[in-house]
Write a protein that binds this DNA or RNA. Structure first.
Length: 113
DNA sequence: CACTTGACGAGCT
DNA sequence: TAGCTCGCCAAGT
């Protein structure tokens, strides 16, 4: 049993909630998430939050989050299957760690929420 | 308590 | 186009 969070959802938790909403076959960016949470300049925290999201209990599609260039900057944190495998399994093309048709598969939380 | 690190991003040179 | 600097903030040392 984990100790219950009293109240006031942390920035991390807000990130997790948003990541859960990313549709399959779509991706978003750290900056977009940060901005959607009202902390546009805290994109680094989003990345940090995803590292913390490696907890087994937490099953989040964090592979659907890339940087603003559509680059798989977090691929080094995966073992197997690789981040690229996970994305391609959803129909997202990845070449040399970069998402193809980035603009097409990009999911903007601000527009969907 | 102070300093460093980091799945980022925008702006400047 | 490529590289450097600064802002932002949690977590680790």
């Amino acid at each position: 049993m984990e100790m219950p969070e009293h109240d006031a959802p942390t920035f991390y938790e807000q990130v997790y909630e948003l990541v859960k909403l990313i549709p399959k076959g779509r991706i978003t960016t750290y900056g977009a998430i940060a901005k959607a949470l009202g902390a546009g300049k805290s994109s680094r925290l989003v990345g940090t939050a995803l590292i913390a999201a490696h907890r087994p209990n937490l099953q989040l599609p964090i592979h659907r989050v890339v940087n603003r260039n559509g680059l798989l900057t977090g691929k080094n944190h995966y073992s197997h299957p690789s981040m690229q495998e996970l994305l391609e399994a959803e129909g997202i093309k990845v070449i040399t760690d970069q998402v193809q048709h980035f603009k097409e598969v990009f999911w903007d939380p601000l527009k969907e929420i």
